[in-house]
Design a protein around this nucleic acid. Structure first.
Length: 691
RNA sequence: GGCGGGUUAGCUCAGUUGGUUAGAGCAGAGGAAUCAUAAUCCUCGUGUCCGGGGUUCAAAUCCCUGACCCGCUACCA
């Protein structure tokens, strides 16, 4: 990182234009911004790219709904991202939009090149297409020959699509990742990708017929098709910098870092990488997948609705504090939890007590004893030499940590320097010197100059994280600086590199403390806060009686049946691993108990919405439990547990509530499950687990 | 089910190729000081390093095994 004249190109994913900017987007973008500013501080040429992904069916639909053209729609919604980044001080060099004409032309050029190289082929297949749902259904999914969702008719459609020969690059990719251990970061993500690549890799469908999706980039070799999202979006990283160079004349591509959330790692590590390889183009140097921000121990996402709006945090604490918290709290790659309490803790104990207060002390002492003027002096005493050394070590250590992407630790090193200043002040007690008048003035100046210089270097190291606050802090110290103050040519990180020509400010309170309610004497806070949380795990589960209407073999799995269930008035498709245990005849017409709110899962190509409860009986035979006498649609409950079912129950949550067999009926712990007509029976021995 | 990772002070976590009394920050207790944002500085930890076995002169660190947690993946349903 100390190497001068290096070039540094970093990207964020392009965000889907229909999304509202949330903390996930903000984190990725802030992290890129901070890294960029650090590299700039170290004297490198940098290029920082972000943007929006603007094609696809959802955009088209949203535009239709609003009665505008897709282009007008994306113009408005793309701007929301751009403005959001402006508000949190993101200094990107380019904001790309996939609807930019240059991008469209570039994608077409690349797709054509793949086509010319024989890396794309067409394949036809026949399927059942529902116009209402705009998707294909398998024959098994149909209900009475109709679309199972809308109940409308489906058409037999023969559709052609284009495929990229991704499978041809599987072996190469495995080898490449193994030979470049820092290609995918952090390393446990690399292992996951390699694990994924142990399965055979399919070719990648890269097209959609215009009849189904018009809002996209037309394929140059077939005007009836548009490019599917991966091809369209991923090439933004290159199209944005096509033909552009760094000041030293070298091309900007390839990227040093692609930053992304772990959900789109495969897309980048596999799809993008193999496409580049197929075109003999240089690969990005690193792909860095970061973790999620957790909120109340739940994943942050727009679907669950528990979104912290970055703009709210900015309003309450200021942009820089918000940025500081995100960078300080999260270990890059790991998940982290977001809470207002944690943010206030960081703000008070680090920014207010150490950084802001350190500055305040010096300003006040300089005001009372030196008339707000500092004069640079050589470091003669032992403590002064030690402080200077501490500053130099902090610079080395922090930049080293940044290069290793350990940003939180880099801040830690910087805080250590600032704490050293506070310690130095205790030792030197300049407030005593200030009372000695003229006699102590030279000594006072030396102490304050050394403190100020150490602080200045600390502030410079914090500047990438808190750009505006640190400029303010340096101005308060009276440092001679330009408007930006961080041109590496002026050696911001070198002891004595700056003059102190301006008067020091007075009454600056850089980071005001946030007063927190003191816990009542002897009161415990977080420990028993959990006491309210653990509800009965069974209450989350919603069980219903269902009747098996039809049993089909799974088209693509040996041990699975595809069952059509009737649950009251509702019809559902559920997969069941009962093929080895029961014949279709035994199953058909039977009444079963189904986990009604289980998160739908895709089992070898068929969506399964629920799970049938069964227990292993004699001879390892798995038999569904029976709700004797109850009608399809009836609820099944456990005595004493008020139901509070949650939608999209995970398997893990389901398993937290153990169901077992006892004397022929199903129990949750010590309470029997009941339908309105009585207990649920199971032909299995006591203690058998039901699932 | 398969693969991978984790379990260290009240909390969040460091602990390099096994080697002297296991560390940091936060929180907590006591004290000093008073320039400062009731901020700062100093002092204070008898922690079965998840349990159990093993290798070794020596293990938080290596091996086996059990429990729990997490991630990816799956004909898990």
């Amino acid at each position: 990182m100390s190497t001068a004249n290096k070039n540094f190109f970093i990207t964020t994913p392009i965000y889907y234009v229909n999304d509202t900017p949330h903390i996930g987007h903000a984190y990725t973008t802030i992290l890129s911004d901070v890294l960029t500013r650090f590299h700039k501080l170290a004297g490198e040429n940098t290029f920082f790219l972000t943007g929006t992904d603007e094609h696809g069916q959802k955009v088209q639909q949203a535009a239709d709904k609003r009665g505008t053209s897709p282009q007008e729609h994306t113009d408005i919604f793309s701007k929301r991202f751009k403005e959001a980044w402006g508000e949190i001080n993101i200094g990107f060099d380019k904001f790309i939009r996939t609807t930019d004409p240059e991008h469209i032309a570039f994608v077409q050029k690349m797709v054509q090149a793949l086509w010319d190289k024989g890396q794309i082929y067409e394949k036809e297949y026949e399927g059942l297409y529902s116009v209402g749902e705009e998707r294909f259904f398998s024959e098994k999914e149909l209900v009475n020959g109709m679309d199972p969702v809308s109940g409308r008719p489906v058409e037999r459609v023969t559709e052609k699509n284009y495929f990229f020969r991704m499978s041809a690059y599987q072996d190469w990719l495995v080898k490449y990742i193994e030979e470049h251990p820092d290609f995918i970061l952090p390393d446990f993500r690399r292992n996951e990708v390699l694990g994924f690549l142990r399965q055979p890799l399919n070719d990648l469908c890269i097209s959609r017929p215009k009849s189904r999706l018009a809002w996209g980039i037309t394929l140059p070799f077939d005007k009836d098709f548009v490019a599917y999202v991966w091809v369209d979006a991923l090439f933004n990283y290159m199209s944005a910098v096509d033909g552009k160079t760094f000041p030293d004349g070298s091309p900007i591509w390839p990227a040093d870092y692609h930053l992304l959330g772990k959900d789109i790692l495969t897309t980048h590590a596999v799809y993008w990488t193999t496409m580049l390889k197929a075109l003999d183009l240089p690969l990005p140097r690193h792909i860095l997948a970061h973790g999620w921000w957790m909120m109340d121990n739940a994943r942050m996402s727009k679907t669950t609705g528990n979104v912290v709006n970055p703009m709210d945090m900015k309003t309450e604490f200021g942009v820089d504090v918000f940025r500081y918290f995100l960078i300080r709290e999260m270990v890059v790659g790991q998940d982290a939890s977001f809470s207002r309490e944690a943010l206030v803790l960081r703000l008070n104990s680090e920014l207010a007590n150490d950084v802001g207060n350190g500055l305040s002390r010096i300003l006040k002492l300089a005001a009372t004893g030196l008339g707000n003027r500092l004069t640079p002096v050589p470091s003669e005493g032992e403590e002064e030499a030690a402080l200077k050394r501490a500053a130099e070590e902090a610079v080395t250590a922090a930049l080293e940590k940044v290069r290793a992407l350990k940003l939180s630790n880099a801040i830690e090193d910087t805080l250590a320097l600032i704490r050293a200043v506070n310690r130095y002040l205790e030792v030197k007690a300049p407030w005593k010197l200030a009372k000695e008048g003229e006699a102590g003035k030279a000594k006072l100046n030396s102490v304050l100059y050394h403190s100020a210089e150490a602080l200045r270097i600390g502030f410079s190291l914090l500047q990438p994280v808190m750009p505006s606050k640190m400029v303010e802090a340096l101005a308060a110290l009276g440092v001679l600086q330009g408007a930006t103050g961080f041109d590496p040519k002026t050696s911001p990180l070198v002891w004595g590199g700056y003059g102190y020509g301006n008067p020091l400010a007075e009454g600056v309170n850089l980071f005001p403390r946030i007063e927190t309610a003191k816990p009542a004497p002897g009161g415990q806070k977080p420990a028993d806060g959990k006491a309210s949380a653990p509800a009965d795990p069974f209450s989350l589960i919603h069980l219903k009686v269902a009747r098996v209407e039809a049993v089909e073999d799974h088209p693509n799995a040996d041990s699975l049946y595809v069952l059509r269930l009737k649950i009251g008035e509702e019809e559902r498709t559920v997969c069941a691993g009962l093929k080895k245990h029961l014949t279709p005849e035994e199953l058909k017409g039977r009444d079963v108990v189904v986990v009604y709110n289980l998160k739908p899962a895709n089992l070898r190509g068929v969506e399964s919405k629920g799970m049938i409860l069964a227990a292993e009986g004699e001879g390892g035979k798995v038999i569904p439990v029976s709700p004797d006498g109850a009608a399809p649609g009836d609820d099944v409950t456990a005595e004493g547990t008020p139901p509070a079912p949650k939608s999209d129950l995970t398997m893990k949550e389901f398993e937290k509530a153990p169901l077992t067999v006892r004397s022929g009926t199903v129990f949750y712990r010590d309470r029997p499950l009941r339908s309105p007509k009585g207990p649920i029976s199971a032909k299995a021995q006591d203690g058998t687990v039901v699932r």
